[in-house]
Write a protein that binds this DNA or RNA. Sequence first.
DNA 1: TGGGTGCTATTGTAGTATGAATAGAGGATC
DNA 2: GATCCTCTATTCATACTACAATAGCACCCA
Lengths: 256, 256
Amino acid sequence: MEKPVRSAPSARRSVYGQIVDELGRQIVTGEFEPGSILPSEGDYSAKLAVSRTSFREAIKMLAGKGLVESRPKTGTRVRQRSQWHMLDPDVTTWAFEAGPDRHYARAFFEFRGIIEPAAAALAAERRGEADLGRMRRGLAGMAAAGSRDEWIGPDLSFHRAILAATGNELLISLGHLLEPALTESFAIANVDAARRQASVPLHRAVYVAIDDGRPDDARSAMAYLLGEALVDLEEMVGIGSNVEVAALHEPVSDPK
Amino acid sequence: MEKPVRSAPSARRSVYGQIVDELGRQIVTGEFEPGSILPSEGDYSAKLAVSRTSFREAIKMLAGKGLVESRPKTGTRVRQRSQWHMLDPDVTTWAFEAGPDRHYARAFFEFRGIIEPAAAALAAERRGEADLGRMRRGLAGMAAAGSRDEWIGPDLSFHRAILAATGNELLISLGHLLEPALTESFAIANVDAARRQASVPLHRAVYVAIDDGRPDDARSAMAYLLGEALVDLEEMVGIGSNVEVAALHEPVSDPK
DNA sequence: TGGGTGCTATTGTAGTATGAATAGAGGATC
DNA sequence: GATCCTCTATTCATACTACAATAGCACCCA
């Protein structure tokens, strides 16, 4: 549909890459409902005015992320949400781009709340000088940041450095999810400069605990930091409101 | 190289699917080193006796998992491990298939040790009757299992049911990683029937705590369960041995 | 010696042809 | 009337070819 400048995110320029982004976003936002069948390759590629080859390559990439499934005769079907690879950076990007998807954003912050405090504790045991240096640079960058855009990079670096310090490849991989999430979170919750600066001491507390080798303090400092960040987002978007939390107690219906 | 029966995992039968599996495994096991360039599409597809079309579709799927990166003129390059999507089910499968990759297996169990106790705690707060039913069926299946193969399914169902009970899509996605991990773990650590049966009460303890709505007990019961499972694997493969743990304190060198 | 400038290998895209698989309709059989 | 089988049409799967776009690299010229 409308294809605006879309400066920031990913910015794939190849034909198949654009289709991946466009179709991926449409699927994640629910424009194509799970269980539904996409138009046939021939029809859809013609409609998009691209070759069937490029279209198929895009579909293959989406299939690799668990979003769709192609079978002869049947066609290409959108899989159930429970089958999607939610931990894929692109899927995360699309989910956050989709405007404030409250359900997803809430799940994501809950997930961070599990991972990152534990990662901070591990980092306090295993941090190397290089990791600490990256954290310090992140802190300095945050303290110096004037605009929102100047803030995101250092913030991201700081959290990534902690994940990297754990030496755990799976935790490091989570850093790839953080980028779209942070970028879009800040785009949504437009916290002002004063508020951002207020979180610098919280970040510093995490750093000090890691530097001193105090895992439990690092864990709780990180938990507190994330809690504050969630509060900011809540106020803006309303995720995590009481209604949402209550609703979450029953929808385990999800019947595969 | 040798292409044995490979009964269990994925078992893709399409041409491009086989290439994805084969290339993916070769990259993850290090047969193609990060930073190296694959042979050109024309050469490699000819060598494999498949069309360039199918080969490219396979490459696209691998690119979607962050394993490779294609650019005109340069070719297709294997990306650094830190860029891989380690939380992709296929990548997990290849990493475990690769024989006992101690480094990865240890990271994976550490990761489970972070996620699953927290998930169990959340499940104790949010579980629905359907979730509890699935857990009960899993327990019953484990108790009744004679062979190793009969055990894996119920075990997997049990852990997935807990993740599902959290209602958190990201946690549910982790269930996709569990399947290859459990399958291969049991293939490696061939624990005997008596030992498996000994873990049934541990699983039951987790279930009871969740059923009763006691988050802290669920968390610690799950942590204990995973600890025991890790002990089994350690004895077989040597992951997590003292040497390994000690070595992990410094290799944060991982540059970029 | 330095810098611009083609050459060329490689991926990207397109179009077409053929094959294989299967859902579903329709017919045969009991 | 119900069940099973066959047959067909649709769709994806694979292959092959041609050309465009890109960018590394060597070469040439000032």
